Amino acid sequence: MSFTEEEIDNLSVRDAVAELIDSSRNERLGLPAGIRVPLLVSSAALVGGLSGMVFGYREAGLRFLASNSHRLPTNRNGWFMYHKRKGYYCFAQSFVLGAKTAGKIGLFTAVMFGTEALLDEVRQLKDFGNTMAATTLTGFFYAWALGMKPVQAKNYIRKGGKYGLLLGVAQDALIFSRGGYVWYINGVLGLEPKKLHERID
């Protein structure tokens, strides 16, 4: 059976894509830790920074109004200058709060997913247990850093563990759906999903 040059190119691209996906099927979110953690950290910092800027702009507007309520303008030119100064002030304050929020959320995300990747390496096993341990440890250190009371800290750590369990199970489900190995699904339940090249063929 002879193939045209175009068909050979299409076959090689298909095989390359299938091999790439198969090689990363056991990775969380389909990405190795060296790519996944920086991507998650930068995304979280970006989202946190933007939300911090929005909140900071609104807060700065209220603060500006409160500090100038005793000397509000009385004519059109005065109101123009008032809103101009208010805009500069709000933008400056929104960038400050946005940078702080981006730093906090980025650091929190880096610690959480970095710990998860470290536990994956130490245990040589990727499962929900590592995710749950990472979120619980991150919650513990966050509560300790903020000096929370024991009741608050316990509640915060418990919530972190619950969210970690949900996130870990969701990641395990994604790994399994890509044909990866998840010990409690493949080993205990005996389920074996098809790998991508088997699905294509």
Rank of each mutant, 00 (worst) to 15 (best):
V17F: 14
G147W: 02
L107A: 15
G56Y: 04
G52N: 02
L72F: 08
M81L: 13
E7H: 06
S67T: 09
T109K: 01
E7C: 02
N77E: 14
L72M: 12
Q171D: 15
L189M: 08
L165G: 00
R76I: 05
G139H: 07
P38I: 06
R63T: 10
R28D: 06
L119R: 15
F113L: 07
L31F: 15
S69N: 04
R85K: 09
T115S: 05
R63L: 06
L189W: 08
M148V: 01
G87Y: 12
D172L: 03
E116R: 12
Y163V: 07
K86P: 04
R76F: 11
A44K: 10
S177E: 03
L97K: 13
M1H: 13
V47C: 07
L11Q: 13
Q152G: 00
E5W: 10
A173W: 14
Y82D: 00
L189N: 03
A170F: 13
A133R: 14
K86G: 00
S67G: 07
K86S: 00
R28N: 10
M112E: 06
Y163P: 00
I21S: 02
R58H: 07
F128S: 01
F55K: 14
W183R: 15
G180N: 10
S42T: 12
K149G: 12
Y89T: 03
F80I: 13
D120A: 10
Y184T: 09
V13P: 04
I200K: 11
L174N: 13
T4Y: 06
V13R: 12
K195M: 12
K104N: 14
I21A: 08
T135I: 05
G161C: 02
G164I: 00
P193C: 05
T109E: 03
L165F: 14
T109M: 03
E6Q: 14
W79N: 07
S51G: 06
K195F: 03
N10I: 12
F80G: 10
G98H: 11
D22C: 09
W79G: 05
L72K: 07
V17Q: 03
H70A: 07
G30K: 13
L39F: 13
R58A: 02
T74R: 10
G160K: 09
A45W: 11
K195T: 09
A173G: 04
L137E: 03
V37S: 01
G164T: 01
T135P: 00
N26W: 05
L72S: 09
G34V: 15
P73H: 07
A143K: 07
F141W: 04
A16C: 07
T131L: 11
